[in-house]
Design a protein around this nucleic acid. Structure first.
Lengths: 234, 234
DNA sequence: GTGCACCCTTGATTTGAATCAATACGGCGT
DNA sequence: ACGCCGTATTGATTCAAATCAAGGGTGCAC
């Protein structure tokens, strides 16, 4: 549900100026309206491919609702998951004529779809708007760097803990639970681990009462201090 | 002095529209002149800290000449190197009031220094210029994603090979040599390996005649096909 | 030239995740 | 309720990189 004051797409990011330490939703109502004018809304069920790597890049997307994964399949059959994207995240932008990665929905999603040509013109005409997108891409860059930090850790449990923290921050909920909508294998491909190691790491976290599962795709952190300690045990 | 067509900073990146598959230098002469007006030039010797993580972000930098590393020190004393930057790369942009990472020179460098406040205004006033910076940040995002792919590999030799290929592409030279200006420990911290593993992997590449060293900080690829095969053995 | 500090390489052992393999769970259709 | 299939967990073994530890090289200061 989107309230009218929230109509149109927004972008989650931190601005670079001082005084805005936190992640905020960029774009003024006017800007949202402007983007709305050039966007169409797309609804997709879970597991649907939005586009494939190598396809002509015709549109850029902003997530309104739901979760998608960005990935690439390697010759060996392995798959690298580069990112999970949530509401107010953008994708399809980081290419040059063709999409570099494939994107598939995990949950049911609602997307804003904007033609690249249109967006390009709009951004060139508005330094204000282009600056906001700049912020957003920088935010995604920070996310990728954070992903790097996760990948550079060598302990599976630590990687999992950082991943859970990331989920919590990116897709906050009213109850203090964390949703794990993706499959274990997606998590494994994101963290650079085998599926079995993901399972084992989660089991260990559960057995040591740091987290507790509520079904396979939902959990909560029981022992926050210990959790934080694992996250920052670098 | 400097020919006007070459004056001022430029940015290496791939544009997102079709027809421009390759990495190009963005910014027209006019745009370079405009940036030059708001930039000062800084020269630094090797090993100098440009700024530290957490410091107030007052300026953005563009590398004119030389190599710098972007890194973060962890409580444990470990260090994560997030990136090596070369001519026409920008840094200091991906923050929110404070710098998120530290930056240190590896070789002697020449930098363009631009005050954040000034740049912000300039970008807001020119959608054209902001779009170019958007391209550049997207380029850096792609670089970070590529780094992710490297980190997700589990074999040390494969990571090294990808790293060497990256160096070759980012800092091309007339002779077909690759410069390794950074220390082994920097490479290790970038690749998520121990210093010893980097040494061993390089030794193995040399022993199997895939590469040959010309001193410790310069090498060339002897067996290109085998090299490529190692790189893409994913 | 000598000594020293720092960086790099090499060797022996340990450790933790990948892999191979089998079993358990959960959702869904009938 | 039952059986089925994709997904998830658990166990045994293997393997590669980290770690621990010891030398070797290089450049710089004196």
């Amino acid at each position: 549900m989107i309230k009218s004051s929230d109509a149109g797409p927004s972008l989650r990011a931190a601005s670079f100026g001082p005084g805005n330490p936190d992640v905020v939703r960029l774009l003024s109502s006017d800007e949202r309206a402007e983007i709305s004018n050039i966007a169409t809304i797309v609804e997709l069920p879970p597991g649907r491919v939005v586009y494939r790597e190598g396809a002509n890049a015709q549109a850029v997307f902003i997530v309104a609702e739901g979760v998608v994964k960005v990935f690439r399949d390697l010759p060996s059959g392995r798959r690298r998951v580069m990112a999970f994207l949530f509401a107010d995240d953008a994708f399809g932008l980081a290419q040059s004529g063709h999409y570099v990665y494939s994107v598939q929905t995990i949950t049911a999603v609602q997307l804003y779809r904007i033609r690249v040509a249109t967006l390009t013109v709009t951004l060139r005409n508005s330094g204000e708007l282009a600056s906001q997108f700049l912020c957003k891409v920088m935010h995604e860059l920070r996310g990728a760097l954070r992903h790097n930090v996760i990948l550079a850790r060598r302990d599976a449990v630590g990687r999992l803990a950082m991943f859970l923290l990331m989920l919590e921050q990116n897709a906050p909920r009213d109850d203090s639970r964390i949703a794990l909508p993706m499959r274990r294998s997606d998590i494994a491909n994101y963290l650079g681990l085998s599926q079995e190691s993901v399972s084992r790491a989660l089991s260990r976290l559960e057995r040591s009462s740091v987290i507790a599962f509520d079904g396979r795709h939902e959990l909560r952190v029981l022992d926050r201090p210990r959790f934080e300690r694992i996250v920052s045990a670098l």
